[in-house]
Amino acid sequence: MRIEVTFNCDKGAKIDFNYNHNLSRLIMESLFDNKSAMFHKGKPFKYYTFSQLYFSHYEISGDKIVNLGEEVHWYVSSPNPFFIDGLVKGLTKMGCYPMGQGEFEFKQVRILDDPEFTNDMEFTCMSPITISSMGRGAKRELYCRIENKCFVENLRYDLVQKYYYLYNSFPKNERLEIIFDKNYLENKKRTSRLIDYNGVKVLGYMVPFVVKGSPDLIRVGYSCGFGERNNNGFGMVKVWHRS
């Protein structure tokens, strides 16, 4: 289930580049009084993802985004309808939320239809995809580089684990092939993103890709996010219609 949230924002308001943790906090505060939406199987529910912010008009000033339009759009996705319902109710009740040097005023929400999930689809990123690999003897997470084999392998494994957590079984078909757009990688100046999430540096990539294989795993990636740290605003994708 996916929603588009629209906020009003004052012209001239300045937002930090690294705003992911602010949006994570917005979700938590919206759900504070709705425990059924915050927990699953007795544990905190983390199977959701959200996009970067989409400004109708903006400019960059130093390390800030300066809003020049009136509306800001934001997308949230989860396979749990109770989570989405609780979030919408919380946002409506909250009304306004401070964001950087400005304030977001909740305006409206729109429920988006899911695409038809097939065994061959093409996506583009709405927030960076990140995946890690604990190296032998490593004391901290090592983020996989998109050019390394572990990047795709770990994305597939992560989707299988998400499916098992959500449905208490493994998918009948675990095959999945992910092919990132080589032309985009070669011609785009910057495809990587180093996000500062409340003091933690997270490496991710925003590159269109084709995915082939299990529609069930593709659906999980679309609804929960591809890769890790989805509930921190990583791994959201949308169907890409190549021009």
Rank of each mutant, 00 (worst) to 15 (best):
K89C: 03
D114S: 10
Q108I: 07
S169D: 14
K189Q: 13
M94R: 15
Q101I: 05
K11G: 14
C96S: 13
K89V: 05
V88W: 00
E141Q: 15
E103H: 01
L159D: 06
G100V: 07
T118Q: 10
R2W: 06
N8T: 09
V72S: 09
V66G: 04
A37K: 04
L176Y: 07
D113L: 10
Y58P: 02
I195D: 03
N119C: 09
Q108D: 12
N20Q: 14
S77Q: 08
M126T: 09
C150W: 08
F82C: 02
G69R: 12
Q101L: 13
V66A: 03
R136T: 14
L217Y: 08
F7T: 06
R175P: 02
T130L: 07
D216T: 04
D196A: 06
E105H: 10
H73T: 14
N168A: 10
F123W: 07
V5Y: 11
F106S: 05
G225P: 06
F104H: 02
S223P: 00
M121K: 05
I179S: 12
Q52M: 15
W240I: 01
F117Q: 03
L112S: 05
G235P: 03
G95E: 11
E103K: 15
S24H: 12
V109C: 11
P215M: 04
F45N: 00
R193W: 15
F45G: 00
L176K: 09
E103S: 14
L142P: 05
L166V: 04
L217K: 10
T124M: 09
R190G: 01
D63C: 04
V239E: 15
S132L: 03
N22H: 11
I15V: 15
F32N: 07
G86N: 03
T124G: 10
L23I: 10
L166H: 00
V5A: 11
V202P: 07
D120V: 02
R145D: 13
N80K: 04
F117P: 01
T124P: 03
G235D: 01
D85E: 13
F50A: 06
N198M: 13
G62Y: 00
Y58M: 11
N18V: 02
Q52L: 14
W74C: 11
K41P: 01
N154R: 12
R2G: 04
L159E: 08
K43C: 00
C9N: 08
K41H: 14
V152M: 08
G42T: 04
L91Q: 02
K238V: 11
Y205E: 03
